[in-house]
Simulated scan of single mutants.
Amino acid sequence: MGFLGTARRAASAAREGLDALQTSRAQAARVAAPVTAGPDAGDDERVRRGRALGAPDPRELLTAEDAAAIAGTAVGGPRLAAGDDAIGVTYAAAAPDGSRWAVEASAFHAGPGAADWSAARHWDGFLAPLLADEGRPVPGLGDAAIARDGEVYVLAGAHLLRTAVTLPADADAGDPTDGAIEAARRAVARLR
């Protein structure tokens, strides 16, 4: 074999080595790592306020084990989030390539100045009409449930919940909306 044949073999071997290196780097960039989160200032107080207004503790609705099973990877958390009318928890993971996995559960409660708030009235008067065009009913989940775009809203007795799942587009864990439905089923089961 002459010089040209030897050069072709060397180039082919170099190309295969480069392809293997690029594949290895791409796989390493997609390895999810749990996102650890410390408490946000004031979250415990907002959770206490939300609980006093009738919302369940969001940390009791969904566990890290639940979230990892739904996301298909280990997750960190819980990270609390609280607003004027809801308290929630998020479990998350991220990869160096920017991919993100997150599983959330939130419980609504009366907001400031809403003394006569109820989950059923909020559902009937606001959420159900808002979600009806884009969402699909989820039979057998709570008293009523609507799923859309990776999130689920559930009326379950005196409680109104929202679950949401974020997955990379090509994640092996499946469809985010299906994950949100599973998260909602687990959260509703814990209300009992």
Rank of each mutant, 00 (worst) to 15 (best):
G38K: 09
T6D: 10
E60M: 07
A82M: 05
V47H: 01
R49W: 02
G54H: 10
G77M: 05
L18S: 10
D85Q: 14
S24C: 05
G38Q: 11
A20D: 06
D84L: 11
V47I: 14
R79M: 14
T36W: 13
R59C: 05
G54T: 07
A64V: 10
G42V: 15
A41Y: 04
S24W: 14
A92N: 12
R15D: 05
R79C: 06
Q27S: 12
G50S: 05
D19S: 08
T36E: 15
R51K: 13
Y91E: 11
L4I: 15
D19P: 00
A29C: 08
L18W: 15
A20L: 07
I87L: 12
R79I: 10
A69I: 02
T36M: 13
G77C: 04
D40W: 04
G88I: 00
L53K: 08
A81Q: 13
I87D: 04
P56V: 02
P78N: 08
P56M: 07
R8V: 10
R9P: 00
T23P: 01
G17Q: 04
Q27I: 04
D84S: 12
T63Q: 05
Q22N: 12
A37S: 11
E60D: 09
P56Y: 02
V35D: 02
A71W: 00
R48W: 07
A13F: 01
G38H: 14
G17W: 04
A32T: 01
A37R: 01
A37I: 07
S24Y: 13
A10M: 00
T63C: 10
D19I: 02
L61F: 06
A86I: 07
G5T: 11
L80H: 00
A13M: 05
A26P: 01
D19G: 02
E45D: 15
A82G: 15
L61D: 01
I70C: 08
Y91R: 02
V35R: 09
A52K: 06
Q27Y: 08
A33T: 15
D57C: 12
L61K: 10
L62W: 03
G88C: 04
A55L: 08
G17F: 01
E45T: 13
G54W: 08
A20S: 08
R8S: 07
A14S: 11
P78A: 12
G17N: 02
V47S: 02
A74I: 04
V47Q: 01
R25M: 05
A20I: 03
Q22Y: 14
A67L: 05
A74P: 13
A55P: 02
E65G: 15
R48L: 15
R25A: 08
P78I: 03
P78G: 05
A82C: 08
D85R: 13
F3I: 14
L21D: 03
L62A: 10
D19T: 06
P58A: 12
A68P: 01
A28W: 07
R46K: 14
V31E: 03
T90K: 04
R49A: 14
I70V: 13
I87C: 07
V75C: 06
